[in-house]
Design a protein around this nucleic acid. Sequence first.
DNA 1: CATGAATGAGGCTTCATTCAT
DNA 2: AATGAATGAAGCCTCATTCAT
Lengths: 194, 194, 194, 194
Amino acid sequence: MSKWGTSVPRRRKRADGERNRAQLIIAAKNAIAEHGAAVSLDQVSRDAGVSIATLYRHFPSRDALLQEVYSEEVEALIGTAEQLTADHDPVTALREWLVVFVEFLNTKRGMADALSTLIDGPDALFSETHARLSSPISALVARATDTGKFRIDVEPLDLLRALTGVANVRPDPDWKQSAIHLIDHLIRGAELER
Amino acid sequence: MSKWGTSVPRRRKRADGERNRAQLIIAAKNAIAEHGAAVSLDQVSRDAGVSIATLYRHFPSRDALLQEVYSEEVEALIGTAEQLTADHDPVTALREWLVVFVEFLNTKRGMADALSTLIDGPDALFSETHARLSSPISALVARATDTGKFRIDVEPLDLLRALTGVANVRPDPDWKQSAIHLIDHLIRGAELER
Amino acid sequence: MSKWGTSVPRRRKRADGERNRAQLIIAAKNAIAEHGAAVSLDQVSRDAGVSIATLYRHFPSRDALLQEVYSEEVEALIGTAEQLTADHDPVTALREWLVVFVEFLNTKRGMADALSTLIDGPDALFSETHARLSSPISALVARATDTGKFRIDVEPLDLLRALTGVANVRPDPDWKQSAIHLIDHLIRGAELER
Amino acid sequence: MSKWGTSVPRRRKRADGERNRAQLIIAAKNAIAEHGAAVSLDQVSRDAGVSIATLYRHFPSRDALLQEVYSEEVEALIGTAEQLTADHDPVTALREWLVVFVEFLNTKRGMADALSTLIDGPDALFSETHARLSSPISALVARATDTGKFRIDVEPLDLLRALTGVANVRPDPDWKQSAIHLIDHLIRGAELER
DNA sequence: CATGAATGAGGCTTCATTCAT
DNA sequence: AATGAATGAAGCCTCATTCAT
């Protein structure tokens, strides 16, 4: 089927393109973590080892890039929610997922900025991610609540927002531990029997 | 009309200087509330009715100005803590102060950005505010804890951070309500008798 | 399915090449009419359904492409001149041709830009077109003059330039009518008997 | 009244500012004449010997700059129309003004581009200039027509457009002569008695 | 003290054009 | 012959900050 006997070497350039694309996403991820969501795209392209024009070829707008960076991780997060739901009792699943969310924030340092920085108020990027995270957290909370032993008046997404707040304290190396304390406290406040 | 002919003008000069300084802080405060922390200093100086150079005379750098804006409000917050401590029982005082803190965040929309936007590591501005807020919140929590009916494993400052997280959801007009729900939940999680 | 198994594909390759070339010219023509002469070549190649590289294979530079677009239409114009000369009396032929020229400008909206945009001095593109249009208009004018009833001190090409000036008023939807009025006036000014 | 004894030296900087402003207008004028209206503002600022930021300080937008360049000359033109109306018989006045208009085009080479290039179709800049030139030319034509010996079916502004067309032939050094021939022809076509 | 002006530097974005396959 | 990818270069614009008066 192949013209040259192996199926791989054909279209090396194409492969490079995809490698660059990947590099850009990685660079953007790191850059955002380091400098916040307002990173210069110039910076990102430099980090990725490509020209700024190449960045623009792959991502026609800053948002398109952020979207992509964001997307991957968010999908993973959502997948984890399903996994945990299957493997654990409701409250544990919720707790564990919040812990995973904190891990996610770790890579995403600056992402919170990203959301609010994007100009148009309730913008597409935010709305979408919002919506995507809303499902799993709501489901997990609902499942915990359905046990009858758990009650929480806080809107599910606000749990994530609270953790984001703790995560945004940039310099503190112990923030993850702090966040876990907060998770425990939040759960404890929701348990009816004590 | 002479510059030194009366005893008043000499003082007025000084007064003008201070008025300018005050105006600048007010303008910066409003500008930040309105446009986020990335406001152009030009904008601020224009709003204050002085030249950009005058701004620089008073505040040698952008950060110095932010610092000051921040400072004022923080001092007010601290004052409130003392007031509440004097007027209310420990848990109520804590709860009320957290509510006041949420109000503070309301004016400061964008201030959170300001903090995280400042680029490198444990920056001076943040650290100082951090330190200054640490005292009142710690004191309030300690006082509540000392009643023996209250226990919280979360680091006091993290309570504020959690609220900040909820506050940072820019477009939601109900965020304040959400924040208060969170406060109640956090307090509830800390009460030993239920 | 084999590449060389039939005698047709070999020719088709060539045919494709020519088709592409033609498509490119058409696309460029439309693009210029729509967006002015500053169209991006990327746009043109996309419209033509080929890659930008293919565009470059056919036309080594932006100017080469414009040249070609221009050329085709100019040839058609010249053909029309001959036709009109054959079919009508001198003055009518001249008038009609000027009307056709106005039609030509209509499709070419933006072409005028194209010419003057090319940066330096008496550029090749312009000069050539210049030269090519010079013949027919001069011939038509000469033929009208030879009747002895017609006299015009204006350089023949300037008649076209004047019309181009009227045509370049972009927003006016009645410009064609205006141009025809101008044609009539110009002819009227040349008629000796009145 | 002055603090230093002469009224001049005070505010030297301000004077510089105005000089720069003037330089920018001159540079823009020349640059447009040379490269057309799409000149890079960077280029203009460089020619004027100031930084691009300074250009922007004086003219917040490209249009603002063009407006200014344009404005001065247009006002002069309008003034001339009044002068000529006062000093000459109707037809002569019209003819002379058209000659002056040709002179104006000489400085303005590329201005025609400017008009059509500015993005929004019938845009403010164009409309205004349009309107401003409309008055004098209409008045001059009307006055000539009122003599009863002159008739022209061409819209007054189209006379200017026709001349602009001739003027836009960049390389020809004799274009001014050509334009004057055209003027004479246009006038001749309008005279009823011959 | 205050001012208006100026600027360097940096980010954004778009192209025409080249290159390896 | 055709392609997608890459890039240098250039334009646009904005801002924090400095300076001469």
